[in-house]
Deep mutational scan, measured.
Amino acid sequence: MSDQEAKPSTEDLGDKKEGEYIKLKVIGQDSSEIHFKVKMTTHLKKLKESYCQRQGVPMNSLRFLFEGQRIADNHTPKELGMEEEDVIEVYQEQTGGHSTV
């Protein structure tokens, strides 16, 4: 019986991991920090939209990076291997420009 009891508790931990929340720091170019608590399985588009709304800027005017890689709207913290207190960097999107060649 103890084996049966242990097995469901392991499964519960697996389920808990799926719905687990982590805190992420979003740091802007001006070094301002906003902290977000997100589920591991939530699409990061929600975090990006919330950040842009707080900053009063359109979402397409900023780019969000985690460990140097651009974050897509459909990425989740779990897919990117994010952990508690990880940092997302935000930069002004640069458009235009010309070749110097």
Results as ranks from 00 to 15, higher is better:
K78N: 14
G28F: 00
V38D: 04
T41A: 10
F64K: 02
V38N: 01
V90A: 14
L65A: 03
Y91C: 07
Q53T: 15
S50V: 13
K46W: 10
G81E: 13
S61R: 07
M59Q: 02
A72K: 00
Q69N: 12
I88C: 02
K45D: 09
I27D: 03
G14F: 14
K17D: 10
I88M: 06
I27M: 06
E18L: 09
V90M: 06
G81R: 07
D15H: 14
L80E: 02
G19E: 13
G28A: 15
V87M: 14
L13W: 10
F36R: 04
G19Y: 09
Q4Y: 09
E49S: 14
I71H: 00
N60T: 05
M40E: 12
L65C: 04
G28I: 15
E79I: 06
T10L: 13
Q94Y: 12
C52S: 10
V38F: 06
L65E: 02
S32A: 13
L44F: 14
K37T: 04
E49Q: 07
Q29M: 05
I27K: 11
F36K: 00
P77V: 02
A6L: 14
K25G: 02
Y51T: 05
T42V: 11
L65R: 02
H75G: 02
T76I: 01
Y51S: 01
I22L: 07
R63K: 06
V26P: 15
M40A: 06
D3G: 11
Q29K: 15
K45T: 05
Y21C: 13
K37Q: 13
Y91V: 14
K37C: 01
N60V: 06
G68C: 04
D86R: 03
E18G: 14
K16N: 11
A6C: 14
K16I: 11
F36P: 04
L24P: 02
L62P: 02
T10D: 05
G68W: 04
Q69Y: 07
D15A: 12
Q94I: 08
V87P: 02
K7A: 08
M59E: 11
K46T: 07
I22R: 07
R54I: 07
K46L: 09
Q92G: 11
F66Y: 13
Q29H: 08
R70T: 11
L13F: 11
C52A: 01
Q69R: 10
T42E: 05
G56V: 05
A6R: 11
E84Q: 13
H43W: 05
E20T: 01
I22P: 07
Y21G: 07
K37L: 07
V90I: 07
Q4M: 09
R63G: 04
V57Q: 06
Q53C: 01
F36A: 04
Y51N: 05
E33A: 06
E5I: 00
E93Y: 11
C52T: 02
V90W: 01
I88H: 04
S9V: 11
Q53M: 04
E89F: 10
R54T: 05
I34Q: 02
K45Q: 12
Q4F: 14
E67P: 04
G28Y: 00
K16H: 13
S31N: 11
G14I: 09
S9I: 08
L47P: 03
E11W: 04
G81V: 06
Q94M: 10
E93P: 06
K78Y: 15
P8E: 00
D30F: 04
S9Y: 10
G96R: 02
Q55T: 09
L44A: 01
I34M: 09
D15N: 13
E67G: 10
K17A: 09
G56F: 07
E93G: 08
L80K: 05
L24N: 03
K45L: 10
T76A: 02
S31F: 15
F36H: 02
E67R: 03
E5S: 12
E85Q: 10
E67T: 01
Q69A: 14
Q94P: 08
H75Q: 12
T10A: 12
E20K: 13
Q92I: 08
S32V: 15
S50I: 15
F64D: 02
F66N: 05
S2C: 12
C52Q: 04
I71D: 04
L44Q: 04
Y21E: 06
Q29F: 01
T76C: 08
E83D: 10
L62W: 01
V87N: 09
L13H: 06
L80I: 01
A72C: 10
P8D: 01
H35W: 13
E89T: 13
D86A: 11
P8I: 06
L13D: 13
T42P: 04
L24V: 13
I71Q: 02
E20V: 11
V90R: 01
L24D: 02
G68E: 03
E33W: 01
F64E: 00
T95N: 06
L65S: 01
G81F: 15
K23Q: 12
L62F: 10
T10V: 14
K48H: 00
Q92E: 08
L13G: 09
L80Y: 06
E79G: 12
V57Y: 14
I88R: 03
E89W: 15
K23R: 14
Q69C: 11
Q4N: 14
Q29E: 00
G19V: 13
H35D: 09
E84D: 11
L47I: 08
Q92H: 09
F66K: 01
F66P: 02
L13C: 07
K17V: 15
G96Y: 00
I88P: 03
E84G: 13
T41L: 05
S32I: 10
I22M: 12
G68S: 06
F66C: 04
H35Q: 10
E49H: 04
S32F: 06
D73N: 05
Q69P: 07
Q53D: 14
D12Q: 08
E67A: 08
L80D: 04
T41C: 03
D3R: 09
H43E: 13
K37Y: 00
E84R: 13
